[in-house]
Computed example of a mutant assay.
Amino acid sequence: MQLGLQLGYWGAAPPSNAPELIAAAEDAGFDAVFTAEAWGSDAFTPLAWWGAATSRVRLGTSVVQLSARTPAACAMHALTLDHLSGGRFMLGLGVSGPQVVEGWYGQPFAKPLARTREYVRIVRDVLAREAPVTNDGPHYPLPYTGPGALGLGKPLRPITHPLRADLPILLGAEGPKNVALTAEIADGWLPIFYSPRLAAVYDEWLAEGFARPGARRKREDFEIVSTCQVIVTEDRRSAIDAQKPTLAHYIGGMGAPGMNFHADLIARAGFEDAVAEITALFQAGKRAEAVAAVPDELVDELSIVGDADHVREGIARREAAGVTMLLVGGRTPAEVRALGALVHSDAGVAG
């Protein structure tokens, strides 16, 4: 099992100890460091700034939002970071949701699968640099000839030669069609919540994508990078309770009523009643009650919280389910080093 450090997106201010956490992760044998974005800090800038102090770990985005940038602009970021890091960059992409896409970026959310397919194809064409990039699709036409166009657009190739045409692209996906598309066109999958009890269902979705004509990967060379809070502690009660506010927020507040992909995924894992209750309480402004309604069983399904033996068992369970990397957080360098030592020790599950 590989480990990735998830730095996430910023809250009201930048995290003060990110450089120390990254240094500890690299020293502790972590395979990668990831950043994210929502509607505040972006994912690329912190990765470039902090990643400059690293020499071994891969650097990834989990995730960059499609509607934040055109495909060509995103490809420019990717090829730039790949050069600066010596070929260590991974591009993680996601469609986000209608509240962010239409409310923050002022873009239409409709047809997310078709947009994703078109977006990834353009990014790959830029990175391949085989010809001037054109696209006749409806979502990202190149050259642009729509309303307001002067008709002077010219197909272009990137001035900078990309370091790798096959730079890895991973997709954040939660529903069956999105996961199948990910298996078809991407190099890896970034599930924000991975339920081991749904492993057989995930396998069916992935298999559909791998079986499509022209699929990019096979299962054996496809990465599954799962966000998973891993906390080694003797105080399970306190640690489980500490996870509940975040879960309540994602279930009740990170999506529009009737269209919350996070809530849908968790409901599929067998928590329909809890999701309905948490959503109703959260939307009624009863945040504390919503947090209290998060079942311990749900925290256990999506996180690994307990003593060292319990953590090893939880990691082994996810490894058996097909996860190749756990994307974990860490509050202190000591926590990061301890987790690295646990996973990579002879007593751990893998090295």
Rank of each mutant, 00 (worst) to 15 (best):
230 V>W: 08
230 V>R: 07
232 V>G: 08
232 V>L: 02
232 V>E: 06
232 V>I: 15
233 T>M: 09
234 E>V: 10
234 E>D: 15
234 E>C: 00
235 D>R: 14
235 D>I: 07
235 D>K: 11
235 D>C: 11
235 D>G: 10
235 D>Y: 11
236 R>C: 06
236 R>N: 09
236 R>V: 06
237 R>W: 01
237 R>Q: 14
238 S>D: 10
238 S>I: 09
239 A>S: 12
239 A>D: 00
239 A>R: 03
241 D>H: 10
241 D>C: 00
241 D>A: 15
241 D>L: 12
241 D>K: 13
242 A>Q: 10
242 A>N: 09
243 Q>V: 02
244 K>W: 08
244 K>A: 10
245 P>G: 02
245 P>I: 07
245 P>K: 09
246 T>K: 10
246 T>L: 13
247 L>G: 07
247 L>P: 03
247 L>T: 10
247 L>C: 10
247 L>S: 02
248 A>Y: 06
248 A>M: 04
248 A>L: 08
248 A>T: 01
249 H>I: 00
250 Y>K: 03
250 Y>D: 02
250 Y>T: 04
251 I>N: 11
251 I>E: 06
255 G>Q: 00
255 G>E: 09
255 G>L: 02
257 P>A: 03
257 P>M: 09
258 G>L: 10
258 G>H: 11
258 G>P: 09
261 F>C: 05
261 F>V: 15
262 H>W: 09
263 A>N: 05
263 A>Q: 12
264 D>K: 05
267 A>D: 09
268 R>K: 14
269 A>R: 11
269 A>F: 01
269 A>D: 09
269 A>S: 15
270 G>C: 03
270 G>L: 06
270 G>P: 12
271 F>G: 02
272 E>I: 00
273 D>V: 10
274 A>D: 12
274 A>Q: 06
275 V>C: 01
277 E>R: 15
277 E>H: 07
277 E>W: 01
278 I>C: 04
278 I>T: 10
278 I>D: 01
279 T>R: 06
279 T>V: 08
279 T>K: 07
280 A>W: 12
280 A>K: 14
280 A>F: 06
281 L>A: 04
282 F>R: 13
282 F>L: 00
283 Q>N: 07
284 A>N: 14
284 A>E: 13
284 A>R: 14
286 K>C: 01
286 K>Q: 14
286 K>I: 02
286 K>G: 00
287 R>P: 00
287 R>L: 10
289 E>M: 02
290 A>R: 06
291 V>K: 02
291 V>I: 15
292 A>T: 05
292 A>S: 09
